[in-house]
């Protein structure tokens, strides 16, 4: 099953998730006077909401991919246009990982999407309750994160609503270990592997791009001409 490959790729690259969202996860799931059960509840709400957010993202991306595919088939006369397009996008993202990164100073925050996202997060993060955690989880799904959007591109390449959602579910599964050992573990890993993190990420993206370009990540039911989708569990 290709979804396992996606989950594996997500797991390998989830070092990034730990470093990026580790802080949020640590604050959401951190201990409070209400006790461990409360913290566990918030953590569950956060990850569940994140999953929901990813599923929606994947579904929408799949739908868009199907449209692109349909357009490609009608206008250009060949299939898997979305797969090829997204493959190219993933390749570009892989190459970008390897290029030196220009620093962004904090002063830019006052404007733009980043500023709005930060404002929303800062509204819900301090609430320290299940609802707040769930909202933060949903907001995580729309963070301007390159890694996350790479998988969205992959979901679009599926050209199928279910396939796209499944890709994002697999991606979510791969991020779980990193985000449940949030903060401390990821900080240590980040320092230990920090220099190599972009290369690891690029390698994963490159592998996914190749898989997308060659149609290897097509949903099983699409490849098998319309059979019912098989459960991954």
């Amino acid at each position: 099953m290709n979804l396992l490959a996606v989950a594996f790729a997500s797991l390998v690259g989830s070092l990034h998730c730990g470093a990026m969202c580790g802080g949020i996860a640590a604050c959401v799931g951190g201990s409070s006077p209400a006790g461990v059960r409360d913290a566990a509840g918030r953590t569950l709400a956060y990850h569940t909401a994140r999953l929901v957010g990813y599923l929606v993202l994947g579904g929408v991306a799949g739908l868009l991919g199907a449209s692109v595919d349909g357009f490609g088939r009608a206008a250009l006369g060949f299939a898997n246009v979305a797969g090829i397009l997204m493959g190219v996008v993933l390749l570009a993202l892989a190459v970008r990982q390897l290029r030196p990164v220009r620093a962004r100073p904090l002063v830019q925050l006052r404007t733009g999407a980043a500023g709005r996202g930060a404002a929303l997060l800062s509204k819900w993060l301090p609430r320290r309750d299940t609802t707040g955690a769930a909202v933060v989880g949903l907001l995580t799904a729309v963070l301007p994160c390159g890694w996350l959007w790479s998988f969205v591109a992959l979901a679009a390449a599926q050209a199928d609503v279910g396939g796209g959602a499944a890709i994002m579910a697999a991606m979510w599964l791969g991020t779980l270990p990193a985000l449940t050992t949030v903060g401390v573990g990821s900080a240590w890993l980040g320092r230990a592997l920090g220099r190599h993190a972009p290369k690891i990420t690029a390698a994963v993206l490159f592998a996914l791009a190749i898989a997308s370009l060659t149609g290897r990540l097509m949903p099983t039911w699409t490849a098998d001409e319309g059979e019912a989708p098989a459960s991954c569990h």
Partner: peptide
């Protein structure tokens, strides 16, 4: 920061 995602989270925290 390396990207706007990091910038967003940093500012929010």
């Amino acid at each position: 920061f390396c990207c706007s995602g990091c910038e967003t989270v940093y500012a929010a925290l």
